[in-house]
């Protein structure tokens, strides 16, 4: 008797915009994968010997590679920001007395740590 209408999901991951924002976050995984592969192949080159290592470094210096890393960097930054934004939801609830600790504070704390760690790494690398 009842004929209910079930709306198809369609391409929900593109529209509306707030769901596209989520899709972009998930899409950063492709760039993370790429970067992990680049690191792994670097490790392999390192193990294979100085020559392989040199050609690996040469490949990295190619403008295409630099461009790709620029893209990876953008994706990585987007991933970082979205990760910190959801961090308050993924960790145990914190309270000050009867008031929940605002999620924004937790996000900011993550960002502060992120900045310190990033600067430290860059300085170390630059000095190294």
């Amino acid at each position: 008797m009842k004929a209910h209408y079930q709306r198809p999901m369609g391409r929900w991951y593109l529209r509306p915009f707030y769901l596209f924002v989520y899709t972009l976050r998930e899409l950063t995984a492709v760039f993370v994968l790429l970067y992990a592969l680049i690191l792994l192949s670097g490790l392999a080159a390192l193990a294979a010997g100085p020559e392989a290592w040199a050609s690996y470094r040469q490949a990295l210096a190619h403008p295409l590679s630099i461009g790709l890393h620029g893209l990876i960097l953008v994706a990585a930054l987007y991933n970082s920001i979205t990760w910190f934004m959801v961090a308050p939801k993924a960790m145990p609830a914190l309270f000050i007395g009867t008031r929940p600790l605002p999620g924004l504070l937790i996000t900011l704390a993550h960002i502060v740590v992120f900045v310190i760690v990033s600067v430290a790494l860059l300085v170390l690398a630059g000095a190294g």
């Binding site: 990876i72 990585a76 991933n79 993550h110 990033s118």
Partner: peptide, 12 residues
């Protein structure tokens, strides 16, 4: 989230 952006800048 914490390390990758800096690492990409350094290695890539």
């Amino acid at each position: 989230a914490m390390l990758m952006p800096a690492l990409v800048v350094i290695t890539g």
